[in-house]
């Protein structure tokens, strides 16, 4: 009797743990911007232990796909997002308005001080992507603004996975700074390996281990991957009156179920 009950408790605990962790999502660039289609990325993501993917192609290289159909074929939730790359805040602002009705997630391609500042002050922006890329930088003021406006700051692991030598050292340094600011401001954040083909996907546990190695807590990595899913769910709920995607259930919120 005793061993049985212990096993049950353990499996229950594991289940509870899985619930706490949330569904794991990765944000990907699909063809024509990347080298794999949405469905190939979805199949591979499932193999790698993800529950969903967010398509984050840039606005000028959009992928053509039917999110609901791919989700049905692969069993992986597919979120239609867009990464807005703009020259300056005015242009970005225009794109935000234009893209909002068609996409579940709006990501702003960060990397300059002006765009970073613009993005963290816009409630319409879901995610500020790779703020430290290029000449971009963050400070406590921007991190606090992101926290205030609910803009997720992306912790982009791509350069750690794909660069080497001095470039990678600088990237790791930037990520550590980024993480310190996020923690200090208690700002919301997402994590992504930013894959551009199915070969560039990496498993959740691998990313977690990599995070630990470069000074980002493993729990933070998981929570950042799950954050994409939480964002998508929130936005779908918000948008559910204006559009309903086939195959996506947007039933009323029921805490009992």
């Amino acid at each position: 009797m005793l061993p049985h009950s212990t096993a049950a408790t353990r499996s229950e605990r594991r289940k509870a743990g899985a619930c706490d962790r949330g569904d794991m999502y990765e944000a990907v660039h699909a063809a024509p911007e990347g080298e794999s289609t949405v469905s190939r990325l979805a199949i591979t993501a499932r193999e790698y232990g993800y529950d969903g993917i967010v398509v984050r192609n840039h606005g000028d290289q959009r992928a053509e796909f039917d999110a609901a159909a791919v989700a049905e074929e692969t069993g992986v939730d597919v979120v239609n997002g867009v990464e807005i790359s703009a020259e300056d805040p005015q242009q970005a602002s225009g794109y935000l308005g234009n893209f909002r009705p068609d996409y579940t997630l709006l990501v702003v391609h960060g990397g300059t001080t002006e765009l970073n500042r613009f993005a963290v002050e816009q409630e319409k922006v879901d995610v500020l992507a790779h703020p430290m890329a290029g000449d971009g930088d963050l400070n406590h003021v921007l991190a606090n603004a992101a926290a205030e406006h609910g803009v997720r700051i992306e912790v982009n692991l791509r350069p750690v996975l794909r660069e080497s030598g001095g470039t990678r050292v600088r990237a790791i340094k930037d990520l550590r700074k980024c993480w310190e600011l996020i923690e200090d401001a208690d700002a919301p954040f997402v994590v992504s390996a930013d894959p551009r083909s199915h070969l560039q996907l990496r498993g959740v546990r691998e990313l977690r281990a990599l995070g630990e190695e470069i000074g980002l807590p493993g729990e933070a990595i998981e929570s950042g991957l799950a954050e994409w899913g939480r964002l998508a769910e929130r936005n779908r709920e918000i948008n559910s009156e204006s559009f309903i995607e086939p195959g996506v259930e947007l039933g009323p919120y029921d805490p009992e179920s």
């Binding site: 193999e47 996975l161 070969l199 560039q200 990496r202 498993g203 281990a209 990599l210 630990e212």
Partner: peptide, 18 residues
């Protein structure tokens, strides 16, 4: 695991590792 995750290519051929 962390080191394996960072293997991007083998002899110049891109690879996915898990």
């Amino acid at each position: 695991r962390a080191a394996l995750a960072c293997i991007d290519a083998i002899d110049g051929d891109p690879v996915g590792l898990r």
